[in-house]
Amino acid sequence: MKISREEFLSLSGMEGETLNAWIEDEWLIPSGSTVELSFSEIDIARARLIRELRVDFGVNDEAVGVILNLVDQLYGMRRTLRELRQEVWTTTEQG
């Protein structure tokens, strides 16, 4: 699903300036050109996580970047772990 900048702002309840800053910091990486950004569901979910970190958890902006980096590495490992499990099964079945 492709979501325009306007739709993203209304869906996430964010201010345009905040969004620009988050994109600048690469907290959010929308696709599309700089003229016309395109967002997807993962961006909305990630924006919500960032908002919860800042508003609900009182995490400061410096720490948000650190947390996002660690979270993404954690998910990278989880994805690979799942792929490995698949790979091990395949190998065992063929074995």
């Binding site: 696709s31 569901e41 996002l68 980096n69 998910y75 990278g76 994805r79």
Partner: peptide, 14 residues
């Protein structure tokens, strides 16, 4: 989304 099988721009294998 981050754990889905779809590729996404935040995927990090480092």
């Amino acid at each position: 989304y981050a754990f889905s099988e779809q590729d996404h721009p935040y995927a990090d294998n480092s």
